[in-house]
Design a binder for these strands. Structure first.
Lengths: 151, 151
DNA sequence: TATTTTTATTTGTATATACAAATAAAAAAA
DNA sequence: TTTTTTTATTTGTATATACAAATAAAAATA
């Protein structure tokens, strides 16, 4: 469905407005679908995101700054996200011995296990969305989004 | 900047994952920039969205259902958004006389004035983002996003 | 007409975003 | 060495999202 129909627009939209609405709306659909994948695991999208960043550290701890700069939503409150993961025993949190301002966050085995179980479902979710676009179209979409964003 | 660099990814991402991150990240940047436009007017993006829907009604009231289905974030809580706008006297809210379950929401003159003042700033924001893409590229981006979303 | 179902909206609760202020340790400067 | 500045994180507050449950009026059915 076209974006005008999705939001039942009564007026014609010009291209630059359409692009914005299309990006916002598409992101909303994406998040909703992904939340459904995560729901049985009692994880929010941003909590999952933090776990993915921590797994990417391959055994090295990440401090709050590092997590923050790797997140998609740059204004997320990392402290409180880590709090939630700590309660579920998916991460550990310790003061860095070399620099007591820093906090070392590590994913636990339980956290790694949850991610392993989720992996195939996440891949399925990702691939389902791209199934009717060709590789060329996907590359074009990536390029256009990057060009659009980088003013 | 490429999406891998934005989120400082340590591993290579496959195309379908890259698309998702790119859409999510681009929407975040868009929202952040738009929030800056709205900030002097003490409006959130979703509050602005509701005002736009109400102006689009051209004098006719909109009930909660109608507002909801025209919003970008379909799970927004319209009741509470309208509450906030009511406090700022940007809308009125009345029970529909024909159907007392329905609520008629109307934009006030004050609300229309705020939108008028914002209009040029919003257009400037929209155009700034599209400035280095050609019309063909913008149309392509719209088409690809719609194709991507509509599985 | 009385009962059930559907529709429209509100309310409650947990989580997350957005942004400013507070805290505290480390580093730099006086 | 004391003071100031910077860095890293936490906390507070308002707003918004996500989703379930509650409320209440209208419509459909028995």
């Amino acid at each position: 469905m076209k974006i005008e129909d999705e939001i039942k627009s009564t007026v014609a939209l010009d291209l630059s407005k359409k692009i914005i609405l299309n990006i916002m709306y598409t992101q909303n659909i994406l998040s909703e679908k992904f939340n459904e994948v995560l729901k049985p695991y009692d994880l929010s999208g941003e909590q999952y995101n933090v776990l993915r960043i921590l797994r990417g550290q391959k055994g090295n701890p990440a401090n709050m700054c590092v997590i923050q700069e790797r997140m998609i939503a740059k204004t997320s409150n990392t402290t409180r996200l880590v709090d939630k993961l700590l309660l579920k025993e998916l991460v550990t949190r310790n003061v860095c011995p070399e620099n007591r301002r820093k906090i070392e966050v590590l994913i636990t085995q339980k956290g790694l296990d949850v991610l392993s179980e989720l992996d195939p479902k996440v891949i399925e979710h990702e691939n389902a969305l791209t199934s009717n676009l060709s590789t060329e179209e996907l590359e074009q979409l990536n390029t256009l989004l990057e060009k659009y964003r980088n003013q």
